[in-house]
Write a protein that binds this DNA or RNA. Structure first.
Lengths: 234, 234
DNA sequence: CGAGCGCTTGACCGGCGTCAACACCCGTGG
DNA sequence: CCACGGGTGTTGACGCCGGTCAAGCGCTCG
């Protein structure tokens, strides 16, 4: 197993008004009056690949907005194996459930070097009662999280190994460069798709051999989608 | 395939103040002042087994609270098969996502005769800005729905056929009589667990043969759990 | 340059899917 | 009241996909 690092680095406090991805995030619609209601600083944090943002059941101080990188949400199953329920990408909120229970329902681990901003629970509780704009954004984020969860179940955990791997490759396409896609360590992919790592490896090799994917690096992380239709029909 | 009935019966309007399951539902914490803000009647509806509450993508007029019975949430997958993402039970909210988008993200079908009350979107939009008590309940419901979705993925769609069937039997235990559990048509169970109906049937038969379950009816719907530990370890 | 980790590939086997026959329940109609 | 038929659950035989075990390779980093 990979050793657990909990090394986060404080990178300063955020000025949300000038956030580069503000149109994607919780504070998208806030106005000056709303910002004036934020009395606690919002920290900008960095986590290195493999480090744990929080663990299952841990007391929560805030939730996170993912600014760079990807994060996996992990549940430990009854028989001790680890199951990845979904992976979050830039703009997603990490740990929404803390708003309701002040605890996290799963474990969040950085899949690469990530940067996040951490919004204290108090800020959100205060603002969501004051600002209908934030209130609406919160609904959107809840709805998106729930739909995402159902998508992972319906799209990626159904059908043959080939279908699952192809589905994951399609889901993980870059937002800006849709001909490229990011995959993960084979063991992680197995935990996402309920397959063994050898099976994942075999299916990827087959997709490359048949011309659906083309590897961009030597670690098996980045691929170019050379035949999209081959992936989507399977 | 089962023919689609859309026969709902109007059973009157609800007086939420005297609701029998009020402590489980959205309106749990409301006070007189809150109730006074409800200007649209809340309808009490009945759906017969197999009928559709709403379809995927349909324009929403409201969301539902399940008062009696069970409802399955169905997604149609890319290749046209139907996938059941979870089943909702008494006290659960059906169609929460409509609050954010005014559309439903999946199809909801009654697994037996059910009764629900339908709360218009307008009532909730109005109340959630007025009442911090409802606001808090809404958060709880969102969090519960998300956790439920993750649970279905992590607990029931992982591991051997035996583990999945045993897990479903445990999850579907009666709230009041925990030694009894409700199962479903074998094809539905297959769509929940990503198994073929023959495999489901075989595993249930095996669990009965080995003494973990005891059938209570002749249709294979109700079982008594005679050895809980046998189900939970597997 | 060597050690170690992760990815790939092969051989084999078992669990689950497939196809098919049969049993049982129940509603329908004679 | 019983005969019939369709729908659903069960069971069996068989084959294939994916799991298991194991060896080998290549990248990366010390």
């Amino acid at each position: 197993m990979i050793p657990i690092h909990i090394d986060s680095t404080w990178k300063g406090t955020s000025d949300c008004r000038s956030c580069g991805i503000r149109d994607m995030v919780l504070f998208a619609d806030l106005d000056e009056q709303d910002f004036a209601e934020i009395h606690t600083p919002i920290d900008d944090l960095a986590f290195s690949s493999g480090s744990v943002l929080y663990t299952e059941g841990q007391q929560a101080v805030g939730l996170f907005t993912l600014r760079k990188g990807m994060v996996k949400l992990v549940r430990s199953t009854a028989d001790g194996r680890e199951r990845i329920v979904r992976v979050l990408r830039v703009g997603d909120v990490i740990g929404l459930e803390a708003l309701a229970t002040a605890r996290y329902d799963s474990e969040a681990i950085a899949l690469m070097d990530v940067s996040v901003c951490r919004i204290p629970l108090g800020v959100l509780h205060h603002l969501s009662s004051q600002s209908p704009r934030l209130h609406k954004q919160l609904m959107q984020k809840w709805q998106h999280a729930l739909k995402d969860a159902d998508d992972w179940l319906a799209d990626l955990n159904f059908g043959s190994a080939r279908q699952r791997v192809a589905g994951l490759a399609l889901k993980m396409r870059d937002a800006d460069k849709p001909q490229f896609t990011s995959l993960f360590a084979r063991e992680d992919m197995g935990a996402m798709l309920d397959l063994k790592l050898e099976t994942v490896s075999r299916e990827i090799s087959a997709l490359v051999r048949e011309g659906a994917l083309k590897p961009c690096d030597k670690q098996g992380r980045r691929y170019e989608i050379s035949d999209e239709s081959m992936l989507s029909e399977v």
